[in-house]
Design a protein around this nucleic acid. Structure first.
Lengths: 206, 206, 206, 206
DNA sequence: TATGAATGAGCATTCATTCAT
DNA sequence: CATGAATGAATGCTCATTCAT
């Protein structure tokens, strides 16, 4: 009994994972508009029906893609930021971890972007507000505020700075696609420096 | 009578302008995927055929949209940046003018973004590389380099900083959609300050 | 009065002739399916409306094309056949004149073929039954019968032979398109000989 | 059960055959221009999508039609010609078999003609050169040449005669449409006799 | 005399989805 | 567990025609 029930759910999990992977690849390489069930199924060497069998609708598949990618990113980045103690070090870790993850998981990130920029609910409103929405922004805002309270950071609007940092990070994927030979290390260091200057206290006030 | 030649071309120009406007609105509010000729025509209270009568293809219409929006933005921003002389002032004007224009022409900017992010050539490659491509980046890079040569700016990778600034600017439209009540003035000032700190010389070096 | 009325009708005739010519060229070079009013108008450097102004419908234009081509062919061929007296000589002249005309007016003949093979009435039935229909066949049948009565031709079914001759003639245009370097003189002589053998009396009976 | 694999492919084969048949009927009765997927689907009591489900494109469907008709004709005619030994008998069998097949498969032959005369490649050039092209002509030319070498046939241009024979044969379908009550046997006999006289040796030379 | 404007019908094709098996 | 079959809706686009001028 306990065994009989688990086996199918194991197959199910494997198939789902495979289909999500194929969806990601299709989204990344062919774009949202071309990411039809037919194309995804073709890449998975599976019938279209198989997809709607495991995911009731295309929408559900895409949402699972989003969840999958988010989960992976969070698992990579969270610990790296948490390992630091000072606000300045946490910010540096935040930027570095993000860009590292993006540069190493470009396909996933592109797929996520395609969905975020194109997927709409039935009412026509964007289904995702993007990585820059409140949920994604909040931890960064808190990080910055704690830095201000600790006297490490100057007095800025934490929300505006957070948005700008996220934007710089989110744009990295597009940058890497256009310039695959980019020196990621150099780019990261420059970015970290930029935001250190932009946030740290002790500059001569204007 | 005397200018009999102009009458027909006047109607044509008016219709084209109307259709471009409707295309912009449709793109902005419904997204690229939903911006079909049928939807655009519906918004213009016109038949689908009317669109292909004035624009030989959908692609041509979209390209006209891009041109239209670009022209408007350039006309607004160019003079404002050109009016400044110091690098720091020019950078400030660059950011301010962009955000002002974006906040006042949100629909157009969104339409442009939809096209830039989604339109593909026949080969499947993106038709536009986006506002962050070389052409759009170059003037800003030059502005920053001149500031460094003049000793106003610190020693950074002008390309990375330029990308980050453009990203912050480009993201403003998405921000305004999500937060229509945003205090644009405050946001702009914070952004200007952020990049002043990030670029200027004379900070205590790390 | 007498003058005032003639001028417009002169212009009209000239325009009609021009449009018919352009229709012929379009049909011949682009085929029936591509011979839209738009394409014909383009070739005539005229608006689509101009065509429906002079010809109430596309159908009317095409019918005028047919008449025009027929008239030209009849004017060329009729006298040449009429100039001969013996049945055998008339048949030879019939074949020679046709092929000469076809080889010198390939475009018109091709246009005629495109229409004949494709044009349909509202009921879906072919609008033209082709050059092989009764009207075109009758003179040839009479020619052959008179030859039989005069004892020049053997005893065959004049209708079947007439059809076969017409078919050989009508196919010449296709042949010339596929083989523009064809030796028309040789081809004609062979054809004439073939039908001389096929029709003349005095062969050893089977 | 045991041949579980065949069931799905059986349905597919049956549907394909049905759709090809309906396409043939539509082409024959309504003409190439009216043979849209919608019309074909209607005749098959099936949705348009069903056609593109089984045939990736309209072009593929039409090509299958051509293949189907050719196959049938070749299977009927080939053996009948091959069964004869003398050149004269082979020519007779060639004509007889063709006309028999045409008169018994009028619809298919008409469909083939519609495709051959109208179907164009993307470049606007005819997709099929027709039954009169080299491939179709070659066997007949060889047949005639062998007859000349064997001394059965007179000295003519085998190519011109072959073209004329093919033309007479190909035109039969049009003739039968216009005259469904035609006595095919009589017509065939007359045609055979005509070409016997036209080709055989031993006539008094002019 | 001639045209620009506009349209509705029709085209081949793609798509996500449903359903029986 | 997975698929083949089938569909209705939607897409960009072409077309002959109408109409006011």
């Amino acid at each position: 009994m306990s065994d009989g029930q688990k086996r199918p759910s194991f197959i199910e999990a494997a198939r789902k994972a495979q289909l999500i992977t194929c969806a990601i690849e299709t989204l990344a390489t062919e774009g949202y508009a071309q990411a039809s069930l037919a194309h995804i199924a073709q890449r998975a060497h599976v019938s279209k029906s198989a997809i709607t069998y495991y995911f009731n609708s295309k929408e559900e598949l895409l949402k699972q893609v989003v969840i999958e990618v988010y989960k992976g990113a969070a698992a990579y980045i969270g610990p790296r930021v948490g390992a630091q103690s000072g606000a300045s070090e946490r910010l540096r870790a935040y930027i570095e971890a993000h860009i590292e993850y993006i540069s190493q998981h470009l396909t996933q990130i592109m797929a996520l972007a395609e969905i975020g920029l194109n997927m709409r609910n039935a009412d026509g409103k964007p289904a995702l507000v993007g990585l820059t929405d409140e949920a994604a922004l909040d931890p960064l805002i808190r990080l910055l505020r704690r830095g201000q309270e600790a006297g490490e950071f100057r007095d800025f609007d934490a929300r505006v700075v957070a948005i700008t940092i996220r934007r710089a990070i989110d744009g990295t994927s597009r940058l890497l696609i256009g310039h695959p030979d980019l020196d990621v290390g150099h780019y990261t260091r420059e970015l970290v420096t930029l935001f250190e200057y932009a946030t740290r206290k002790g500059n001569n006030e204007t």
